[in-house]
Each structure stands twice: as structure tokens, then as C-alpha cells.
Amino acid sequence: MPVRSTLLVLAALAAVAACALWQLTEPRAAFSRDQWQSYEQGGDAARGRIVFEAGGCASCHATPGQPDRLKLGGGLQLKSPFGSFTVPNISPHPDDGIGAWKVVDLANAMLTGVSPSRTHYYPAFPYTSFQRVKIEDVRDLMTFLRTLAPVSGKAGDHDLSFPFNIRRGLGLWKLLFLDGKPLKADPAKTLQWNRGRYLVEGLGHCAECHSPRNILGAVVADRRFAGGPNLEGKGRVPNITPDASGLGPWSQKDIAELLTSGLTPDGDSVGGAMAEVIRNTAELPPSDREAIAEYLKSLPPRQTSPPEKKGSGG
């Protein structure tokens, strides 16, 4: 075959591959904006407050350096091996926050990691967990968020290294790590267990910190909840499976107490990022903390993840 036609074939193949890649990486939102009105009906702000606390929204989105947990101006920097993420403003400000959003927009953001302008969000926003959240809870959450004070000022851009700064590439990441499946109720288990699973696996996004991540930044499935390195600083995040090296010696009451007061069974008061989580879980109804405890005690016991070798980029 002459060189010229070989080149043409290669060019054609490359074009096909590029088209396929473009298709594969397209941001796909689960909810259509055409029917946005149907999702706006019946939201309840009081229920939304519980969704807000269970999701720990304030921990990242509250403006840093001031005490009001409901001032959601964003701006917190989240360090990662890929660069620094800047948490956005989710106050109901029409221009700088999400005041112009519909319930469907929040649902697409939380469940599929897709913005209203159809771009991918980075999974520092834990939609890998939020994909399990019920649309009714998103609606209630939006109703609650709309009751808060608008905060002016957009948070800055992320500061990421190449190639992680190419948002479109997240389409491939999502194909690998986002299944989009809601949790199906397990009728063989108690209602409390099912509620606990929903809070732990969905809204609470516990696995996002309490598991090690692979080189692409996704949670390692067979090490889920077995503890991992602390991405935000020194030390490690504890194992929360009922293994002897994790929560094995803890009773359900011990877990519920930790989520209320921050106290471990030996009287230590947890610090680090968990102190902030306790501020959220302390606001939940006691039944929700008991549900979380019941579910955690039912997890498959896993031995604590060994520390990564130095230089592996953790």
C-alpha cells in the first residue's frame, strides 16, 4: 500500500477514535430540564435541613474562618495529589451561588456530577456517594438551601495539574467509577439498617475518607471503609468496619455516642476532619445516628489498610 493511503487510513482511524472519545466523555445528566417544574413541588425545608446535616454540606461549603455554618460562600481549598480544589459558593445568590438553579440542576450535580451548563464536576464533590441519594431528598435540600442568606462573591477556580485540569476527561473516569445505581431497599433487613445504609453509603459519603484510593483517585472497592491515608494532612483515617483493627470492639451505642459528642469509648475526643463531621451528625435525629451505627456494625470486617509505601504518590 502506498504511504499516502496508509496515512489517510490512519488519519481516518484517528478521527473515528477522537469522535468516540468525545462521545464517551460527554457529560450526561440523569434528569431532563424539560420537566423541571414537576420536581419543584412539595419540598420541605425542615426535612431538607436533615439532608443538609447528613450530607455534611457545611463542612466544605461554609465560608472558612467565620463561625456561621449556614453561610455557604465556599472558598475552602481541598488539597489532593492532583492539585488544589476550590469549594464553590452554594448559597442562594443568583449570580455567585446557586440561586438560579432548579431542583433538577441540584439533582444532576449531586447524582451525576454534571453542572447546569453540562460540564463535569470533579469527584472531590462526592457524587460517587451522592449518586445513591433520592430525588425527594434533593428536592427537600434545595427547599432548605433557598431559605439561607445569599452570599456574594464567587469562589476561585481549581488549581490542578495537567492532565487533570481537562474536565472532559472526567467522562472516562465516570465510565469507570460511577454506576448511577440507586440503593434498593433490602426487605430482609430492618428499616433502621436500610436507613443507616442510605446515610453511610449515600448522603454521609463516609467511604470517601475512610477508604484508600487508587492511582486515579477512586475508592478501592475491596478496601472500602478499611481506613486510608489522610489526604488533608498527616496521619491516617481510621478503619470503620467491624474488624478487630476497626470498630470491632465498639458497640452500636459507642458509635452513636461518637456521632453525638465526639467521644470514643476510652474518653478521647476525636479531632481532625472528624470534629467537623461530628458538628453535622450531632444535629441529626438520634434515630439516624443509631441507624448509622447499626449499618456500620453490619459491614464486612476488613483488616486496616496497610500504610502505602513512601514515594507511591499517596
Binding site: G235, R236, P238, L263, G271, G272
Partner: peptide
């Protein structure tokens, strides 16, 4: 009593390293 525990956690959050 429980409000005192907030004092504990508040300090540990800022001034104590995570466990190894």
C-alpha cells in the same frame, strides 16, 4: 455536661495530629 465535649473536639481539630 455534653457541651463541654465541644471544647475537647474544637482543640483536637486544630491542634492535634491524626493518629498514625
Amino acid at each position: 455536661f455534653p457541651p463541654i465535649f465541644k471544647d475537647c473536639g474544637g482543640c483536637h481539630e486544630k491542634y492535634r495530629a491524626a493518629q498514625n
